[in-house]
Amino acid sequence: MREPTFLILTALAGGPRHGYGIIREVTTLSEGRVTLLPGTLYTALDRLTAQGHVAHDRDETVDGRLRRYYRLTPDGRRALEVETVRLRQLATAAETRLGALRPRTA
C-alpha cells in the first residue's frame, strides 16, 4: 500500500469526510509532509471505491459547493489494520536493529 493510500484510509478511520476534509486530515496526520492534490486524491478514491475499501456516505451543499462524504467500509478497515500491523512489525524490527547499534553505556 502506497503512503497516500494509507493516509487516506487513516483519515477516514476517524469518520466520514469530504474531499477537502481528507486533504486537510492527511496533511495533519503526516505533520505537513504529505499534501495531497485533488487529482491524486480522486484517483486513489476511485481505486479504493472499486476495491470496496471506501464507500460514498452522503452529499451536502455548503456555500453552493457540493461536498461528497466518504466513509471507510469494513473491508477498508481490515486492509488498514493489516497494513498497520505490517508497518508496526517493520518499525519494530528497525528499532531493534538500531538499538543494537547504539553505543553501550558503562
Binding site: H18, G19, Y20, I23, P38, L41, Y42, R65, L66, R67, R68
Partner: peptide, 10 residues
C-alpha cells in the same frame, strides 16, 4: 462538480 468544489476549498 465535487472536484471543482474541493479545488476551490483548497
Amino acid at each position: 462538480e465535487e472536484m471543482v468544489a474541493v479545488l476551490l476549498d483548497a
